[in-house]
């Protein structure tokens, strides 16, 4: 089956991202396809490469990056939600005159159309959040 995944909450504050990660991993292990993981609302905070969690805790952001590399996952942060919350890739940082970008490897920034397209193209869209 082809899954689209929507993550609506940030890392550590909320379990949504952990559950989404575990779901994605289980689906891929079972031979399913993950069409796209879309991060919205505070979920975009899953894509910052500047998180420094305690060493004895899971690294939510790195975990997504590693899963993306292993399975060529498409991890997309909503551009409007990301900009509000200070998540910028190099192009966006330059466009808005900011002195840094902070997107983790494997993530890309794009529009909400990517969420709707994932909903249309996937057999199931599974939402993780409140």
């Amino acid at each position: 089956m082809k899954f689209g995944i929507l993550v609506n909450e940030g890392p550590y504050q909320h379990q949504a991202s952990d559950s989404a990660y575990q779901f994605a991993q289980a689906a891929l292990t079972a031979g399913h396809e993950v069409y796209r993981v879309f991060f919205y609302h505070d979920g975009v905070n899953n894509g910052t490469r500047l998180t420094v969690p305690p060493q004895d805790d899971r690294n939510v952001v790195d975990r997504w990056s590693e899963l993306a590399e292993k399975h060529s996952l498409d991890l997309v942060l909503c551009v409007a939600a990301a900009q509000r919350r200070g998540l910028l890739d190099a192009d966006e940082a330059q466009r808005h005159g900011k002195d840094a970008d902070n997107i983790a490897p494997g993530f890309r920034i794009s529009g909400l159309g990517q969420l709707i397209e994932a909903a249309i193209q996937s057999d199931r869209l599974v939402t993780f959040g409140d």
Partner: peptide
């Protein structure tokens, strides 16, 4: 922010003729 950002999805989604 859920309500506001939900509305943003609806407006963008309208372009997809669903």
């Amino acid at each position: 922010i859920y309500a506001l950002e939900s509305l943003e999805v609806v407006l963008i989604g309208a372009a997809f003729d669903q």
